[in-house]
């Protein structure tokens, strides 16, 4: 497609304004090739049906206190954890100075629903799924490279740089959330 026809030094012709036409034709060829390439690249982005499934609803009554339910959202695990008062307390009492990625527990849950912690369940290190309830902070422990998260899903130890991510979600009713 991109057969460049630029030839700035044709024999017997001065390389001046005359060559503008070759440059323009060559530029059009490059532009055309780029325009053709774009759909071929963009097709790898999520298709319409994939995007359509990008939000899910979840019924919180399915989680019992002290437990977590893992659901699949956008191909990744989402942890929905019903925290005990002790776990909430522990998370709140942790001074921000102890944290690698300082964030208050209150900012990681919705007001009035502090017991429910909703997190994207992939370790911020290299994407493994941390194990529930393991590790010295009572939160999660990542089996791959030993990152330890607390009961607010914040990174406390190990190679992970950030806290477990909180997805976009909203309460539709007191017991129903829409994630995404």
């Amino acid at each position: 497609m991109a057969e460049t026809v630029v030839n700035p030094n044709l024999e017997g012709q001065e390389p001046t304004r005359r060559d503008f036409i070759h440059i323009a034709a060559g530029a059009a060829a490059v532009g055309g090739a780029a325009m053709f390439a774009w759909p071929l690249i963009d097709q790898m982005n999520p298709a319409a049906d994939t995007l359509a499934l990008a939000s899910i609803e979840f019924d919180l009554t399915k989680v019992t206190e002290g437990q977590q339910v893992t659901i699949k959202w956008r191909g990744k695990p989402v942890f929905v954890r019903y925290r005990t008062p002790a776990e909430i307390e522990a998370a709140r009492k942790t001074p921000l100075s102890d944290l690698k990625d300082p964030q208050k527990d209150e900012d990681r849950v919705k007001p009035g629903h502090e017991q429910f912690l909703i997190l994207v369940g992939t370790c911020t290190h290299l994407g493994c799924v941390p194990t529930f309830g393991a590790g010295e902070y009572g939160g999660w422990f990542c089996p791959c490279h030993g990152s330890v998260y607390d009961t607010s899903g914040r990174i406390r130890k190990g190679p992970a740089p950030k806290n477990l991510a909180v997805p976009d979600y909203a309460y539709l009713t007191d017991t129903r959330v829409k994630i995404g």
């Binding site: 026809v5 005359r18 323009a24 055309g32």
Partner: peptide, 20 residues
């Protein structure tokens, strides 16, 4: 439209290169 313009440019370039 793009191809028509592109064809015109290339034709002009072609005529110039083959001149003589």
């Amino acid at each position: 439209i793009f191809l028509a313009l592109f064809a015109g440019l290339t034709y002009a370039s072609y005529r110039r290169i083959w001149r003589g």
